[in-house]
Amino acid sequence: MLTARQNLIFDADDTLWENNVIFERVVDDYIAWLEHPTLSHTEIRRILADIEEANIVTHGYGSQVFLRSLADCFTHLMQRPVGTGERERFDEFAAAFTSGKLELIGPVHDVLDDLATRHDLFLMTKGAHDEQQRKIDASGLADRFAGVHIVATKTPEVYRRIVAEADLDPDRTWMIGNSPKSDIIAARAAGLRAVFVPHPNTWAHEHADLDPTDDGIVEVAALTDLRRYF
């Protein structure tokens, strides 16, 4: 266990609370509803993933961009825009993200409370600001953190900016999250250390191979295991 005080920056979606599983359920419902006559479930998911990737570049992250991708995919597959008859179904897809309910992953409160007795905790989440703020408010976790940062994307430059603004020592700063690409690789490129907490429903766009020889990365099976290292 590290005895010197560390700076622990936590990811939010799929690290502290469930998120991508909601998107996955909507995608399954969407594809079943489409009942496309020739394309398989897998083929439609691949087309939707390509459309999502393009929309992320142009419009960023968040449920509204995702819903836009569903509509764009519908237009692509059906060769017509979403009509009045389909609007009610799209409203149902949107409702999955506005219920206000949030499912924390494991005993998050206890883990954060314990770690806060020895270390300084921060939160860094990416996406649409208002949407992420609603999740943070619903979680009841904001007061556990010395700083909360909502960013459009997680790049090495963004990590360096956050670390500089908070006057953190990179050698004692750890990014903790489930996304190899944005939580681990980007943080390591910025000179931070990182803790990888795998999640079975991590978004496919965030998948990436981690360097098994990098001693600046620690992998744990669950958030509760953080107590063994910090």
Rank of each mutant, 00 (worst) to 15 (best):
S69E: 02
E35K: 15
L39I: 02
R45Y: 14
A49M: 11
R118C: 09
N19L: 07
L34S: 09
Q79Y: 07
T15M: 07
T75W: 05
F66L: 04
L48G: 04
T58C: 03
L48C: 03
A94Y: 07
L67T: 02
M78V: 00
D72M: 09
L104H: 10
D110M: 10
F90K: 01
G106T: 03
L121S: 09
V111G: 04
V108P: 06
P107Q: 08
T38I: 07
D114V: 11
V82G: 02
F66Y: 11
G106R: 04
P107M: 09
D50K: 13
D91V: 09
I31S: 01
L48Q: 06
I51L: 10
D72K: 11
R89D: 04
V111T: 10
D14G: 04
R68W: 09
T38Y: 11
L104Q: 06
F122A: 08
I105F: 02
A12G: 12
L48S: 01
A94W: 03
K101T: 14
L123K: 06
V27R: 06
P81Q: 09
T98D: 12
N20P: 00
I56C: 10
H76W: 12
I105W: 05
R68E: 07
I47C: 03
L16K: 01
G106D: 06
W33P: 02
P81M: 05
I31N: 00
E92P: 01
D50W: 07
L112A: 06
A71C: 04
D110T: 15
D28A: 15
E53R: 15
E52Q: 11
D120K: 12
G106C: 07
E86T: 09
E103A: 15
P37Q: 09
D13K: 05
I51M: 04
Y30D: 00
L34A: 01
I105A: 11
I51F: 02
W33I: 03
T84V: 12
V26H: 01
V111D: 05
P107K: 09
A49H: 13
H41A: 11
G100D: 08
F66W: 03
N20L: 06
V27C: 07
H36E: 05
H36P: 00
R89I: 14
T75G: 05
G83S: 12
D113Q: 15
F90V: 08
T75C: 12
E53N: 11
S40P: 11
N19Y: 07
H109F: 13
W33H: 12
V26G: 01
